[in-house]
Design a protein around this nucleic acid. Structure first.
Lengths: 235, 235
DNA sequence: CGATCATTTGAGTCTGCTCAACTAGCGTGG
DNA sequence: CCACGCTAGTTGAGCAGACTCAAATGATCG
């Protein structure tokens, strides 16, 4: 409970037809005629770090496609602590649960500068009814979420803090091995790995001493991937 | 790796129209005409405890609806240990990933006597294309799996062993508060809660001493739900 | 420059892990 | 029928990793 809600700036109606990352997103393989079925505006949003896309428990009326940046899905436990259950990156979809009439399950918070598209539920429903292509893509997104959830449990919530942290770095570095990994503070780090934030801090410090990572600026890490791989599997 | 595969007995082709638990299952709200679209046999299976519905990595050609009993979804970690990522009960669907062309993610093993229906992927695909009702039901199942995955992480993989165990009992007792809870051994218990089997054993023993549960027969437990509730939240 | 927040570091405690021994139940084969 | 071996579970002892509480340091922003 450390940050107040910062409302997203609404940028304007997105041009899906000419979307730059069209092959990644939910509407990726719509065809010309399909776009005519979009009868409500699809807004493009930009969120500052710390801003929320939506909050747990809200009756949702839209899904979101992440265009760039990183979003955390947070679940608040009865005792007040919080746990990060998933991270969403470019191409991922947030809020699928509104498609089955449920309120949002988590609170979705930007960890970095985030660009996202807001897809009104009705638009997705209609398209999903009319075109089997979108229907398939939707299931694909459900699958990805579920797959990530299972991975999160087995890789980031199992084993020693060292192992978990190594696996997190590997996961974040995976699709851009040469880019530095951007994190958002030791508190979040702990909430992702299911460890205390002091332990997170100590473990990161130890990784820096062992030259497994190098923190070039606060929360910006250069990783020695092979070495991390070794830590993730053995010790 | 402690049990060899025991093949399920194939009982025969199911009669979906007259299914006893039709309101629970995937095909719950099909209508008369829809059944004509089923062009491949739907078999009904019965599995003994320890038998596998399918194995991780297999190219799947079918989904399964659980009619009765309890099934564990197991993920094997690189280091050989295993983790149970979900439990499936009456009405749940296993193997949704085949709907997006993926091999099975987990190994599905019966913990008790299990009855299940085998739904060929092609049948579900065809129905899902043709009837929006099934399409909705299918998304409902994805949602349930994802929801359970998130719960599993936040409730059964967070906090002390005492808390986790209490929450597991509560979860298993939830939909039949007066029935005893059936488990399948301390090893599995540990694999569900992400703790060692010795710790599982000790914690169960301690619950018995504190009269939180009573083990009327091996792996059959009567639970004091309010008391467990207290343990789950506070201590 | 002071206030606030994030991070680091320290010390002590406790939970859970590991290794190991021991018990109980059960089926098999002598 | 009993001895044996196998498996599952229990229990103990010692150790180590992670938690908690607390204090110190560092960074940022009015």
């Amino acid at each position: 409970m450390r940050r107040s809600r910062i409302d997203a700036a609404r940028l304007g109606t997105a041009q899906c037809r000419s979307c730059a990352i069209r092959d990644l997103v939910l509407f990726g393989d719509l065809q010309e005629g399909d776009f005519d079925l979009i009868h409500l505006p699809i807004d493009e949003l930009r969120l500052a770090p710390g801003a929320a896309l939506y909050h747990a428990g809200e009756e949702g009326s839209a899904l979101f496609t992440i265009r760039s940046g990183l979003v955390k899905l947070v679940q608040f436990l009865p005792d007040g602590t919080q746990r990060i259950v998933r991270l969403l990156r470019r191409g991922a979809v947030a809020g699928l649960e509104v498609m089955v009439g449920r309120p949002y399950e988590h609170t979705a918070i930007a960890l970095q500068e985030v660009e996202a598209c807001r897809l009104p539920r009705e638009v997705v429903e209609r398209l999903s009814r009319e075109t089997p292509r979108l229907h398939g893509r939707l299931m694909e997104r459900w699958y990805q979420s579920l797959h990530q959830a299972d991975e999160w449990l087995t890789e980031l919530s199992t084993g020693s803090a060292r192992r978990r942290l190594a696996r997190l770095f590997l996961k974040l570095a995976a699709d851009a091995p040469d880019e530095p990994v951007l994190l958002s503070g030791r508190e979040d780090l702990g909430a992702m790995l299911g460890i205390g934030m002091e332990t997170a801090s100590r473990t990161v410090a130890e990784f820096k001493r062992s030259r497994l990572v190098r923190e070039t600026a606060p929360n910006v890490f250069l990783c020695d991937l092979p070495a991390l791989e070794a830590v993730a599997t053995e010790g």
